Each structure stands twice: as C-alpha cells, then as structure tokens.
Computed example of a mutant assay.
Amino acid sequence: MQGKKTFKDEKELLFSLSAHVPEHNFYRRLKQQLDLSFLTELTRGYYGKCGQQSVDPVVFFKLCLVGYLENITSDRKLIEHCSLRLDLLYFLDYQLDEPLPWHSTVSRTRQLYPEALFESLFDRVFSLCVEKGMVRGDTQAVDSAPVKANASMDSLLLKQPLESVQQQEADKQRMLQKNSKPAQPITAPAHQLRKLEKHHENLRGTFTSLGSTHEKAQLVSNKTHYSPHDPDARISVKPGKARKLNYHCSMVVDTAKGFISHVRADFADGRDSQHLPSLVTQVQGRLRENGLLMQELLADTGYSNGSNYFMLRAAGHHRLDSRVRDVQARDSGLPL
C-alpha cells in the first residue's frame, strides 16, 4: 500500500536536542573541550547593573567562532544559519524553540568590546591548545593576504591641505547640521607628491595615446585620496588583480598541527617586510608565556629585505640564503 506523508505542525513537542546530536559531531566535541565560562567575569565591567539583560558573552563569542568556522561574514546570515542547525543550537546552549539573539544585537556587542578583550580570549584558547599538545612552537610559518574593505573605489575623495582641514574642524557645528564628514589632510611630503604627479602625467600620456578615458582607477593614490566610508582602508593591488580598497591581514601558523598562533590586521599600503619584525616579536612573546621556543620561521620572499637580514644576523642567526623561501630565526630574546 502506498504511503502518503502529511505534515501537521505540533503545538507541543517533547524533544531532546542533545540526543539528536551524534557523539562524533564536531561542535559537540568542541563544546566538551572549550570552556569559555571565564568570559562572564572578564566582560562584567562593560555592562550596567540594571536594565534589560544582554546576550550572554559566552554565546556571543561562540557565534563569532561559528562565523569563522562556517565562513560566514554577515551577522544576519549567521543567525539564520545557526537556527537551522541542531548541532549549532546545541553548541550555543539554545533549545529548538528558543529564539537566537537578534543580528543587530550581535553587531552592537562586537562594537562594545575592546580589542584587548579579543586578544585575551585568543591567548586563553592558545594556552588550552598548548595543554592539549596541538602546538609545538619550534617552526612557525607567516604569510599575508589582502582583505577587501566594504568600500568602493568610486567613492574616493581628494584629500585637502592641512589648513583647510583645520578650518573644517573649527566649524564642526556647521558640518553636523549638513550631515557631512570631515576631510582628511594631506600628510605625504612634498617630494613624494611631486614624484606622484610626474607618474600621473606619464599615465595620462599613455591613456591619450591608447584613446582610453578610464583614468580614475589609475590616477588615485593613498597619498592624495581617501574613502569617506572607510577611512582606514587603503588602495592596494596584487599582480594580476584590480586595484581595490583593502586591509592587510598577516597570519602566523604553527606547522605542527596548522594552529594559528597569531593574526593581525594592518593598513594595506605597507610591504610584508615592514611587518615582519613586530610579528616575530609578538609571536615569540606568546610562545614564551606558554614555555615554547621558536627555532625556525618560514616566510616567502616578500618578507625579505636587507634590514630584516641584518637584524637576524645581529641576533646570531645563520643560514640566511636569499635563494630559499624561508628565514631561519632562533629565539635569543632580542627584539627583532
């Protein structure tokens, strides 16, 4: 006899969420190993003593972790995604019929906490992974990638002379009434601006000879232009890619288990080699706090320059061959 399924919405349902999440499920095992209860006391000072209850800080940071693991950058999509997954609801300590936090609450909570709090959480999780034997520490690999800013190249504005910006700052009330944003001053030295103008003149000549009229994408610079929507974004380009407003993300990974030992965001108008000394110093400090010693650092040729080689040699390091794509650095306690 042929069967036919008819859906009938239950008004009352006895349902055990933990019974429907398998023991081998990743988020169930992660929940058993990751104890974030210390965040309650760590974040207590950012809340008042009366009023409506906020989202649990532990839930907020678990949502951030899920967003990273599931590659979801939108808070709205993150909440929708979690509401459709039994294992994620169990990981967040929410029942099947319990509404998750509103997506705007997640965004406001992210703005509430300072950067130091996120770093404290990173250090605590790093220490937990060291205790579990997931971090060896002797070999670290560093690389970087541009992260696209939420701003368009078409929205770039020309920076104003410093005197003009000071005049605008003195008239803040007028700007607030017009709902305008203050301009950024030109901070580049005069000789750099002259060199940039000469380069732009050469480009204009090339455009004229080719009959092209699309000059704006080629004739902007971080020295003379800025984004009013995201002033911290910088114009950058990778070989074979279009110029965009980006951030510079550096990441250091322990090669034993592929665990991230350090991550940092910087302005996108700097070279990789400029960030290497501070990255090494920060990674060395975190490893020392956990009783580990970095003996070798792997990096591509973008991190190589004379200054970095000189500092590494001054610290007593050897086998610095520019033909290979790694830099060996033995921890001597000296700042790099």
Rank of each mutant, 00 (worst) to 15 (best):
Q111D: 12
Q168V: 06
T109E: 12
V253G: 01
L112H: 03
K159Y: 00
Q274H: 11
R124I: 07
P189D: 14
A145Q: 15
E131H: 11
L117I: 15
Q168M: 12
G205H: 13
A19I: 10
K195N: 14
P22R: 08
L17S: 04
R313F: 06
L245E: 00
G302M: 05
S155H: 11
L157N: 02
T40P: 01
I72G: 02
L128H: 06
G137L: 01
V125R: 05
Y90D: 12
T73V: 13
S83N: 14
S273L: 03
V280N: 00
V66Y: 02
H318W: 09
P146H: 04
A233R: 00
K148R: 15
F7C: 14
H262A: 03
D266T: 10
V327G: 00
A315H: 03
N246M: 07
I186C: 08
D230R: 04
L312T: 01
T187K: 15
T301M: 05
C50G: 10
Q53M: 09
M175A: 06
D154V: 08
G291R: 08
M153P: 01
A145W: 06
P114Q: 12
F91H: 01
Y309T: 15
H191I: 12
F126H: 01
S120V: 11
L157F: 03
F126D: 00
P101R: 03
K148A: 10
F259V: 15
Y46H: 14
A188Q: 07
L36N: 03
K11H: 12
E201C: 08
G133T: 11
A314R: 14
R29Q: 14
V59Q: 04
P146R: 01
R330E: 12
L176D: 11
P22G: 06
L84N: 15
L157M: 14
Y47N: 09
D171V: 06
Q218R: 11
L298A: 03
E131F: 07
G240F: 07
R271A: 15
G291Y: 05
G48C: 10
L30K: 03
H200A: 05
S83E: 14
Q295N: 12
S273E: 04
S307Y: 05
M134T: 01
T281F: 05
V280L: 14
M1F: 10
G48K: 12
L69F: 09
L158P: 02
A183M: 05
Y27M: 11
A183N: 10
R136T: 10
V263H: 07
F122G: 01
L287F: 10
D230V: 14
T43P: 00
Q53V: 15
L158W: 06
L312H: 01
T187S: 12
L334T: 10
A315M: 06
L158T: 13
P185I: 08
D97A: 14
S74Q: 05
I186V: 15
L193G: 04
D35N: 15
A256C: 09
F61R: 00
L65Y: 02
K195G: 11
